[in-house]
Amino acid sequence: MIALVFFAIVFLTALLSGIFGMAGGLLLLWFLLLALPASVAIVVHGVIQLCSNASRAWFSRHYINARIVAVIASGGALSAIALALIGYHPNTTIVSLLIGVMPILVWIPKAWFHFDAARPSHAFGCGIVAGGLTIAAGVSGPTIDLFFIRTAMDRRQIVATKAAVQVIAHAIKIVFYAGSALALSGEQWGVVALAVPFAILGTRAGNGMLRRLTDANFRYWTRWIVTVIGGFYLLQGLLL
């Protein structure tokens, strides 16, 4: 029964990510944190999200900007090295508070920011900030968005390029927390492996729904969904 509920959550959160590019990952990690220590939850989240984002990137591969992906990934690798050197180790309180305040970013007026992921220096800065948050908190979607709001990309290019960036970010995260993976038994990892097809199916379904959204509706609903999820995280962090 627990496995079936887990599969359903993976499918629905992948569906959400397929439409909006990030909200599903936030929600999936929240459920994982209810049952697992932070570092273990982050690595399980990384495995599922890597597969989900990889399928999303593949379905939208014609819209990916490979140059932006490469520059952002190099910044993320630098952040991972820095966090490894200081011996960073997460806990549920820190993760919840970090994610809980992220939705504030989607409400700040666009005029306040002059970031453009199409500019190499900005893309590298995005990699450093978002890469650090991906390892420290498990996710960084709202932060990455700040660097895409001034690009000339449409919603399909944004979702596709972000998916490719997240594939690399989650791979780095998995390597960073590889030791935590030993906390799960082979049977539990078997359940995680069985959940991967549900992530891919959810992503495919969400990708179809994305085509029917307008750019205006895409941005409007992303803002509200991320805010509500962030509110749950912030409340959890304050209670802890």
Rank of each mutant, 00 (worst) to 15 (best):
A23H: 04
A195K: 13
L36H: 13
L234E: 11
D215I: 05
S55W: 15
R119W: 01
I81H: 07
L33S: 06
S185P: 06
I94S: 13
F115C: 02
A199M: 02
V175C: 11
A205W: 14
Y63L: 08
M209L: 15
R211A: 13
L98H: 03
L194F: 10
L4F: 15
W58L: 14
T151Y: 00
T93F: 06
I81W: 14
T203I: 05
G141R: 00
L182A: 14
G24L: 02
T134M: 01
A111C: 08
T222S: 13
G231W: 07
A205V: 14
R212L: 12
I104W: 12
I2Y: 13
V159S: 00
L240F: 12
D215A: 07
D215K: 07
I172G: 07
P109S: 08
A66I: 14
I135Q: 01
I86P: 04
V226D: 06
Q49A: 13
A178C: 12
V71W: 07
A171S: 14
V101D: 06
G131F: 00
L15K: 10
F7Q: 11
W221Y: 13
S96G: 10
A169S: 11
A73H: 09
G231E: 12
T161H: 00
I9D: 10
G100I: 07
A130R: 00
F31D: 09
R67P: 12
S185C: 04
Q236C: 04
L133S: 00
V196W: 10
S180K: 02
C126S: 02
A216T: 12
F147W: 02
S96I: 07
L50I: 04
Q49K: 07
D116V: 00
V101M: 10
V5H: 10
T92E: 15
L234M: 10
W107T: 07
I72G: 01
A57V: 06
L210T: 06
N65I: 10
M209F: 15
I128R: 00
F176M: 06
T143S: 03
A195N: 14
H89M: 08
R61D: 09
G179A: 01
S52V: 09
G132P: 02
Q157S: 11
A117Y: 00
I158T: 03
L26V: 03
Y220N: 12
R155E: 02
V69W: 09
I158M: 02
V101E: 07
K173W: 03
A73R: 09
G21N: 02
L15N: 11
V5S: 13
A163G: 04
T134I: 01
L83C: 05
P37G: 05
W58S: 11
A117N: 00
R119I: 05
S180N: 04
V95P: 06
I158L: 01
I225W: 11
V129L: 02
I108M: 13
Y220A: 11
S79T: 00
R211S: 12
S17H: 08
M22E: 03
L12G: 11
T92Y: 08
A70T: 15
V71P: 05
A82P: 07
C51M: 15
A118E: 08
G208H: 15
T93V: 13
C51P: 10
I72C: 05
G24C: 03
A73I: 10
R204G: 14
E187R: 12
